[in-house]
Every structure is written in structure tokens, then in C-alpha cells.
Design a protein around this nucleic acid. Structure first.
Length: 367
DNA sequence: TCTGGGGTCCTAGGACCC
DNA sequence: TCTGGGGTCCTAGGACCC
């Protein structure tokens, strides 16, 4: 039996929350993001602001040049998290099978509920109404038999949209859309596809599998399946975090020195705190550096023992920094990430390794 | 125009083991 | 004396998503 999957996507989420909390901003162009003098970018733009050509990820300096009367608001992620939890709880009142993708998006598997609600459309309308009643926000919803179709459908009538793709209509629905609309096809893949004469999702669906495999490897075949409207990925309610990171772009480029080292300590503290809050520890510490010319490198080190200790993380990162920094280098970004996360307690394996470090005996060689 | 911060996943090469 | 094959782990970079 065909599944019914919904994709729900809050409209201009951060900007809408600001307009909700500050009525004087309603009806006005609002951009959420850091200030232009601190090299901020747009995290969200209200629909009023989008009419000026502003969109997310745009440098704030450019956004404000496009629309000088726009109101810039610094993000309040704590507040967005609160509102997000309210929205997700509305979703979970409909079905336990909710997969949040970010603060403002989720997949819902409502296969078991559609009959009771009198069909997918009635269910989706009720969901939209409940979100509006509980939070005052509008949400765009797409419905279909799989994630790919539901996600793309939710994008088609924003804001406050509702698009339902009937079972069996998946391939025809997708075919005319640009290749870029597919999840996983970004700017790079789009240009590779265009060079091969593949512009629409239908072009990808109809291409020879060998051609896609030659261009993208195994991923090419997966993309073609999606393009053909086939996608059996389940809605997953559990998600295991794999890394924790903190990074910062400086208002002006920084050479190595006390200021940079202070930032390193601050970031190490933040990562350590978030690790211990989440009850996990990291075996790998990753240092990320972005040079003044935007070139970016990472250096990492893995140890047998996982840690959530700020000083250990800081000294690991400092060692990596010492090894790469050259006189005259200027940096615009510094970041620290913890990876290879594990439980709080060191496991059997790392105990073994630690013993090996202490008193090493040559292992007998076998062949 | 001048480029954030939070992530995930994949690839490729090298070390190392048997 | 001209070079195996399978596996795992680690590192670095990059594409992509919101």
C-alpha cells in the first residue's frame, strides 16, 4: 500500500518569528542575520524583503544595499528553538512518526492517519490550521508517496502552500522541474548536468544510467531513482549526532597572537560544554582555519580516549594550529569541531590502546 | 556583492595489518 | 629483482542542506 508522507516547511521562519514577537515589524521588509560590519549574511528574509531580491545566505551588506529601509534583526536562536518545539508538538499530535530536519522543517509519515482524517488534503489542512492557531505561523505542506515528492511539493506554493501529489503521478509531477530542485543536486552538480544536456528532472529520469554513473558515481544512480519518483527512505524519528562544532568569523582578519588564542580557548570551551550537555565525548578534535583569501583548511587529530574536557580540546587544537601557522598568515575564521563521538565512558578498545601507550611490548607478527 | 554557522555524507590516498 | 589482496582506520577536502 502506498505511504502518505508530508513535508512541512515554516515560511521565512526566523523572520516570521520576529514579526510575530514585534508587531511593528509586520508588513515590513525584515532580514535576520549578523550586521554588515561583522561580515554577516542573511539567515532569513521576510517575504516583503524578498521582493527586493534579498535571499538567505546573501551578504548582509548587499541585502541592505538592495533595500536600505529593511529592518535588520540579529538572530535569537533560543527563541526560534522554543517556537520550533511548539510546532513539532503539533505535528506529533497527528502522528508519532515525525522527522525534524531543522528548526523549521519536518517529514511526517501519516499513512496510518489519512483515512481517519478523511484524506491527505483534509489532514494537511487541519495540520496547517493547528500550527496557525498554536503559534500564529504559516506552514507550507507537500504531500506524496515518498520524501522526495513531498519535499519538492512543499516548495511549490510558498508561502502558506499546500500541494498534494496523487499516487502514481510522481514521475509526471517531477519531470518538468529543474534538476536543481532535487535534493542533493547543488550548484556544482547542476552545472555538470547542464554540460551534459540534462536540465530537468525528466532529463535525468530519461538519461542512460551509465551516463549518470560516469558523472557522479554511485550517487548518480540514486539521483536517477529519485528523478523517477522512486524513493523508499523511511521517516526516521531518531537521529544520532556525529559531530559538535563551534566556529566564528572575525569582524576583521586576525594574525596569530593573544586575540586568536583567546578565541581558540573560547571555542574549545563551547564545544566542551555542548559535548557534556549532550552526554557525549569526542575522540577527534578538528581545527578549521579560513585564511584572509577565503581558502579553508582543516587539521584533525584522533586520540584513543574520548574527551569532553575544555583544556584537553584546547591543547589539541592549539597543537594543530602551531603546526600550520606561518608568519604573516591572517585568518578570517577559526573553528573547532569534535568528532568520532562516543559515550561518556571510555570503551574496551580505548582501554587497550591506552595500555599499549603505557607499556608497549612488540606484538607477535602473524601471517 | 564578497561571502555565517550548524551540520551530514562521500571520496581518495596512505598507513597498517594479516 | 619489480611488486597481492582484503580489510580497517585516519586524514583532508569538498558538495550539499537549512
Amino acid at each position: 500500500m502506498a505511504r502518505t508522507i508530508l513535508h512541512a516547511d515554516l515560511d521565512a521562519f526566523y523572520a516570521s518569528v520576529e514579526q510575530l514577537d514585534r508587531p511593528e515589524l509586520r508588513g515590513r521588509p525584515v532580514v535576520v542575520g549578523g550586521p554588515p560590519e561583522a561580515r554577516g549574511v542573511v539567515a532569513a528574509a521576510s517575504y516583503e524583503a524578498r521582493r527586493f531580491g534579498i535571499h538567505s545566505a546573501m551578504p548582509m551588506s548587499r541585502a541592505l544595499r538592495l533595500c536600505p529601509q529593511a529592518v535588520r534583526v540579529s538572530p535569537r536562536f533560543g527563541r526560534y528553538g522554543e517556537v520550533s518545539r511548539q510546532v513539532m508538538s503539533v505535528f506529533r499530535a497527528v502522528t508519532p512518526l515525525v522527522e525534524p530536519l531543522s528548526l523549521d522543517e519536518a517529514f511526517l509519515d501519516v499513512t496510518a492517519q489519512v483515512r481517519r482524517y478523511g484524506g491527505a488534503e483534509a489532514l494537511a489542512r487541519r495540520l496547517k490550521r493547528r500550527v496557525k492557531e498554536r503559534t500564529g505561523l504559516t506552514v507550507s505542506v507537500g504531500a506524496g508517496t515518498n520524501k522526495t515528492v513531498a519535499k519538492i511539493a512543499s516548495d511549490m506554493q510558498k508561502p502558506d502552500g499546500l500541494v498534494i501529489v496523487a499516487p502514481g503521478a510522481e514521475e509526471a509531477f517531477l519531470a518538468p522541474l529543474p534538476a536543481r530542485a532535487l535534493w542533493g543536486v547543488g550548484p556544482r552538480a547542476e552545472s555538470v548536468l547542464a554540460a551534459a544536456g540534462l536540465h530537468t528532472i525528466g532529463d535525468i529520469a530519461g538519461a542512460r544510467p551509465q551516463q549518470l554513473e560516469a558523472l557522479f558515481g554511485a550517487r548518480g544512480l540514486a539521483v536517477q531513482e529519485m528523478a523517477r519518483g522512486r524513493d523508499d527512505r523511511a521517516v526516521e524519528t531518531e537521529h544520532e549526532r556525529k559531530s559538535v562544532g563551534a566556529e566564528t568569523t572575525f569582524p576583521r582578519d586576525l594574525a596569530d597572537g593573544p586575540e586568536l588564542r583567546e578565541q581558540l580557548a573560547r571555542l574549545a570551551n563551547e564545544v566542551a560544554e555542548r559535548l557534556s550537555q549532550g552526554g557525549s565525548r569526542a575522540r577527534t578534535v578538528v581545527l578549521k582555519l579560513r585564511y584572509a583569501d577565503f581558502h579553508t583548511i582543516t587539521r584533525q587529530t584522533t586520540r584513543p580516549e574520548p574527551t569532553d574536557d575544555a583544556e584537553e580540546i584546547e591543547s589539541a587544537a592549539a597543537g594543530l594550529l602551531d603546526a600550520v601557522v606561518q608568519p604573516g598568515d591572517k585568518f578570517r575564521l577559526l573553528g573547532i569541531h569534535g568528532a568520532k563521538l562516543g559515550e561518556g565512558q571510555p570503551d574496551q578498545l580505548s582501554l587497550w590502546s591506552a595500555a599499549g601507550e603505557a607499556g608497549r611490548t612488540p606484538a607477535p607478527r602473524r601471517d
